[in-house]
Design a protein around this nucleic acid. Structure first.
Length: 227
DNA sequence: GCGACAG
DNA sequence: ATCTTGTCGC
């Protein structure tokens, strides 16, 4: 898979914030709504919160059967600790390394983190989308920013997430009576499209299958049980 | 000044 | 993210 290198990575938070501000206006919140999604990739990273080694996995599945089409992996070293709002600068480089090894070009990529629902409207999913020039969706397990009521208890129930007078995503109940997830557009997709993609990938689970499988894969890879 | 804070 | 005991369901 081809990756566009738009700039060098930094290890200084103030510089990272300036980069986010300059790139945020480039994300596109609409896509080709009539395109049917068949291959969807999930990416995930494993590693300690501070500086050190990190591992990444990308898993491509095919809908509606949820078959695994392809998996790829990468290892790297991060130079920036985990800082809320700057997750991209830890995780994106190693994610891109894993994606480069993919033979399949997926129709869309789901990230384990936020997209638009970010302090500077530029979370990991937005950042990744610009680099790979593909539709991306952020699906996080917890909140970073924004306000919304609690969604009802049934699978599919949701509430829009608002931040600084903008609708940045939604809180989505992917499974009945289970803690909801935080969904937001990354690139080339809007809020409602993001919701439909995530719901169609969940298959009765709390997390979308691409994300769940990438999480399992990256941990096996880290332990040396997969390559 | 005080909390909140993706992974 | 990481750590950790117990419980539930197939």
């Amino acid at each position: 898979m081809k990756i566009i290198d738009l700039h060098h990575w930094v290890d200084e938070p103030s510089k990272a914030i300036e980069i986010q501000k300059s790139l945020a206006s480039r994300i596109i919140l609409e896509g080709k709504s009539n395109v049917r999604l068949t291959t969807i990739a999930g990416v995930d990273v494993s590693g300690v919160s501070s500086v050190g080694p990190v591992w990444a996995a990308a898993v491509v599945i095919k809908l509606p059967q949820f078959d695994i089409v392809e998996r790829s992996f990468a290892v790297s070293t991060v130079n920036l600790p985990y800082v809320p709002g700057l997750l991209s600068f830890r995780e994106l480089p190693v994610i891109l390394e894993a994606l480069k090894k993919l033979q399949t070009v997926p129709d869309l990529i789901i990230c384990d983190g936020q997209g638009l629902a970010h302090p500077r409207f530029f979370g990991l999913a937005c950042h990744l989308g610009l680099w790979v020039n593909l539709p991306t969706v952020g699906c996080a397990k917890s909140r970073l920013i924004g306000k919304a009521p609690d969604p009802n208890i049934n699978a599919g129930d949701y509430e829009l997430l608002e931040y600084k007078d903008r609708t940045v995503g939604l809180i989505l109940r992917t499974r009945t009576r289970v803690k909801p997830v935080y969904v937001s557009p990354g690139h080339l997709i809007d809020v409602d499209g993001s919701r439909r993609v995530i719901m169609s990938c969940c298959n009765g689970r709390r997390l979308p299958e691409p994300t769940r499988l990438a999480h399992l894969a990256v941990n096996s890879y880290r332990k040396g049980k997969l390559k």
